[in-house]
């Protein structure tokens, strides 16, 4: 009753494994069917590609959305007492939208949001990567927004005053003076959010998007043995996370050096 991999296994395996002890034989066979048979390793590679693509697109959307939403929230909080007329109404409206967005997105599970997007909102679209990136990006944006808002609030009020006293408007002061500092201050937290996002994309399989987790799951099912396929999926995530943690650490050090 073994899968067809068993026939090929004896033909492809090198002699020293075939003639070795039984346990080595067993492991060799497990590895063979998990990665080599049927070119299954290609599924992990494809999954890796999809996970990375999904994460980067979502990151892009998330940061853009996060910056916009945090700016709306901060501008409203700091200025609404001194504003008048239609400007105040417009900003107040945007602030309301931003608050609803933050509450709904942070108050519901990612998987549910993803399924609503894929099966309801974009029911006609079969572009899983785009729908996935949008869902994860919208989700991540809510967390990024609160991180950046915290960063902006941590910048000394004197920086805004210095910018304004030179003649910069509120928006230009934000752009040239406050945001660069806020980004720098929140970089470790943003990087952490990115790593959380990378791992969170593991639920993309719920809508059939073939990412790393999906590959491990499918292959495990195909060979009636989940050990190596799932370990491989976990290992890929681990290596990715360690690699990005290393990159962020270097970036942080470089930013810090620029001030010394």
């Amino acid at each position: 009753m073994r899968p067809s991999a068993s026939q090929n296994w004896l033909l492809d395996a090198p002699d020293w494994i075939q003639n070795g002890p039984q346990w080595l034989n067993d492991i060799g066979y497990d590895i063979y069917k998990s990665f080599i048979f049927d070119n299954r390793y290609q599924m992990y590679l494809k999954g890796l590609g999809n996970t990375l693509l999904l994460t980067f697109l979502a990151l892009l959307i998330g940061v853009l959305l996060g910056v916009v939403v945090s700016l709306i929230r901060v501008s409203w909080d700091k200025n609404h007492t001194e504003m008048h007329g239609p400007g105040k109404m417009a900003l107040g409206f945007l602030n309301g939208v931003a608050r609803v967005y933050l509450t709904v997105i942070r108050g519901t599970p990612m998987v549910v949001q993803l399924m609503i997007m894929y099966f309801v909102v974009f029911a006609t679209s079969r572009n899983k990567i785009m729908v996935g990136a949008l869902s994860f990006g919208i989700n991540s944006g809510a967390y990024v927004a609160e991180i950046i808002r915290g960063g902006i609030m941590s910048i000394d009020q004197g920086q805004m005053e210095a910018g304004r006293s030179l003649g910069f408007g509120y928006v230009s002061t934000m752009r040239y003076i406050i945001l660069p500092q806020a980004f720098k201050a929140t970089l470790p937290t943003l990087a952490n959010e990115f790593i959380v996002l990378l791992k969170e994309t593991a639920v993309a399989g719920y809508v059939g998007l073939a990412d790393i987790t999906y590959a491990g799951n499918i292959i495990g099912g195909n060979c009636y043995d989940y050990l190596f396929p799932l370990l491989m999926s976990a290992l890929i995530y681990l290596v990715l996370v360690m690699f990005f943690t290393f990159l962020v650490g270097r970036l942080e050090r470089r930013l810090r050096n620029s001030e010394r």
């Binding site: 004197g158 304004r164 006293s165 003649g167 408007g169 500092q181 720098k184 001030e259």
Partner: peptide, 20 residues
């Protein structure tokens, strides 16, 4: 006001230089 502030320099107690 931004145009007029360009012509009014200001120096603060805590300097407020841009650290980045």
């Amino acid at each position: 006001i931004n145009l007029h502030r360009q012509k009014m320099g200001m120096v603060f107690q805590h300097f407020n230089l841009f650290p980045h």
